[in-house]
């Protein structure tokens, strides 16, 4: 099948879209494999290949992610770019491929962006403080199955940044809320629940992400379908953190 890729190329402060026609693709290829084909061709032609982040290629590491025709990770729901197969496109389609764009995600090169801001949000409080060796028996605290399931659903976040890329506010609240919810609904996470919400949101804001206004663009873009209700939970925890005396 044929596709025309209009790809963002950037090596300094600014970049531009460059058009690459590809005419011998297989519908069984993944989107990233189409980029591989293009890159091998560019290398042989003596040009620099398109830089893009990718690693596991099975939708779990969260390293890949590009905007394809203005949609994070492309048109298929709940799918990362590496698992998006060309059979979901029409022969002859023209696809615009751009990096994630947000102030706290500066472009490094071509389609590669710097997402280290996510690590800093986690470092600010996205953990349970339990040094190795200090844990009680795993069955010491039973966890109701629905709570465990809710925690898992939120913990499935792969930190790819699609939520930020899709958000009209450039907000990382879905990412932040996913971690706060994962840890906040488990009994183990209760002691730090409110300070965690406070510290993570403070770091989120300090990093220059926009504020969430419940626009709802993030969940449909999320390859793991992290629900919006996680943000409601984070909101409630943050309000509680600043209004009750329980956890200062």
């Amino acid at each position: 099948m044929k596709l025309t890729l209009r790809i963002w190329r950037q090596s300094g402060a600014t970049g531009r879209l460059v058009e690459y026609p590809l005419d011998d693709l297989s519908p069984d290829m993944s989107f990233l494999e189409a980029l591989d084909v293009l890159n091998e061709r560019l290398v042989l032609a003596g040009e620099e290949p398109v830089a893009f982040d990718h690693d596991c290629r099975e939708g779990i590491c969260g390293m890949c992610g590009v905007m394809i025709n203005g949609v994070a990770h492309g048109p298929q729901k709940a799918t990362t770019a590496c698992q998006l197969h060309l059979r979901h496109f029409e022969d002859g389609d023209v696809l615009t491929v751009e990096p994630w764009r947000a102030e706290p995600f500066p472009v490094v090169r071509d389609l590669v962006v710097d997402r280290s801001a996510f690590d800093r949000i986690v470092a600010a409080g996205g953990y349970i403080s339990v040094p190795a060796g200090s844990a009680p028996d795993a069955h010491a605290t039973p966890v109701p199955k629905p709570d465990a399931d809710t925690a898992f659903e939120a913990a499935a976040c792969i930190g790819c940044g699609a939520c930020v890329a899709a958000c009209p506010n450039g907000s990382a609240m879905l990412f932040t809320a996913a971690k706060a919810t994962h840890l906040g609904v488990l009994p183990q996470g209760q002691p730090e629940r409110y300070s965690r919400a406070r510290d993570m949101v403070a770091e989120h804001d300090a990093l220059g992400f926009g504020g969430c206004t419940n626009a709802g663009e993030c969940t449909p873009a999320c390859p793991k379908g992290i629900p919006l209700i996680t943000i409601a939970r984070l909101n409630a925890d943050l309000l509680r953190a600043h209004t009750s005396r329980s956890d200062r």
Binding site: V130, A132, A135, A138, L186
Partner: peptide, 22 residues
Amino acid sequence: VEIIDQCVAQGVPFAREYGGLL
């Protein structure tokens, strides 16, 4: 044996049964 204890304490959401146990 200790690994499971450690990971549960960290909040790893292992699958659980309806009684709340792993």
